[in-house]
Design a protein around this nucleic acid. Structure first.
Lengths: 207, 207
DNA sequence: AAAAATTTTTACCATTTGGTAAATCCACGA
DNA sequence: TCGTGGATTTACCAAATGGTAAAAATTTTT
């Protein structure tokens, strides 16, 4: 048998790994890294603690696996921002994709927020190696649009920060948002309309 | 001696309480509630753990004291939003005050963010009793300005959310921001200019 | 200075928590 | 059906953690 080549995971392995990661996402996103316990994760997954540790080397590895998987999903909307598309609608569509993600993946959003809030102790390196290059590239695209007069002359970096901040706010600060605008079933659409209006105006080229 | 009337705290009590709360703010804001330990707080404060517990009933009370004190500071910029002032500059000044707070009180911002991120388990009641009434009141003020044609017809609730999100982002996501725009000494001014531009455009009454 | 009150330290304790060793269970191919 | 390797449980453990009791030290009051 060739060494170093892991054999393909069995059906049970596939299922349990997924179950554990899903349970861990619930617990980590709600309580943060140190606030989460293996017992909680095990209970949520319907498995025993030693059984969890049969599939993952430890608590940190579970957390790291989640963050790694998340990275790709998280950057995807920005990857899709097309330099050859219509500038204004490219950016507004990006806003919409991020807002939809905050609605559809609030646990992931909070997991990421918690990690950054604590100084990115575990995902820091990937911010440099993965996020930074993509960010710089897309900033250059936006700067190009601005220079060409296709959109207003704004600061691309801070524009992206504002998009991240406003969209993720609805997931990360949901506890506060729900207190202040509780029970509105159309909340997502209202937010979408508001952000479209805001960033639409921001990008308009003034005469 | 009259019962229930606490005598005034001594000089030592005043000093140590302040020292402990400052140390706790450092630790809680960096590691979150459960991630923080009394030993860490004690070390940071330069006191022994039992001595900490001589001044506060327990870990939770320290955290709660911090959040309580923070509430006032946190709402202050919004309190100052004046219904009788010039609408556009009132709002832009509010943005500026919030951004300055993110720069000057990043620990407080992260403490608050961490609490909300985890579902506001300890400060939840105060969101209802203190934040909500103020929020509703100021939303009404802004709605009045919009109705009177003094500013664009925007959604006041989501406008405030966007202001909170964009300003606090610089404190709460500082680990990410510093990776992406590292080492710019004028970062705060650049952000200020960007937000002025963005919210200024947002509020302009279109013809 | 002596007494009283407050502050600090020393020495603990019970529980929680991440993790391990080894025995047992079980699915599945020969 | 029986053996085998993967999957699961049982029974632990050491360290960390929030917290306490009581003695000792220090400050304040008389």
């Amino acid at each position: 048998m060739p060494d170093g080549v892991p054999k393909k995971p069995s059906r049970i392995q596939m299922r349990n790994r997924r179950v554990i990661l899903d349970a861990a996402l619930n617990v980590f996103s709600q309580h943060g890294y140190r606030g989460a316990t293996l017992d909680q994760i095990a209970a949520e997954a319907g498995l025993s603690k030693p059984n969890i540790l049969y599939y993952f080397q430890g608590k940190e590895q579970i957390h790291l696996t989640l963050l790694s998987q998340l990275m790709e999903t998280w950057l995807d909307p920005l990857v899709e921002l097309d330099a050859d598309g219509d500038p204004k609608s490219e950016i507004l569509d990006y806003v919409q994709r991020k807002l939809d993600m905050a609605r559809d993946l609030p646990r992931e959003s909070r997991l990421f927020a918690g990690e950054i809030l604590q100084g990115a102790p575990r995902i820091g390196p990937r911010l440099h190696s993965e996020l930074k290059p993509l960010f710089d590239q897309k900033c250059a695209v936006i700067a190009g649009w601005a220079k060409a007069g296709k959109i207003a002359d704004i600061n691309p970096q801070h524009l992206i920060f504002s998009i991240w901040a406003t969209t993720q706010h609805y997931a990360d600060f949901e506890a506060q948002v729900s207190v202040l605008v509780g029970g509105d079933p159309d909340a997502h659409d209202t937010a979408s309309q508001h952000l479209r209006e805001m960033f639409g105006r921001m990008l308009c080229v003034k005469d």
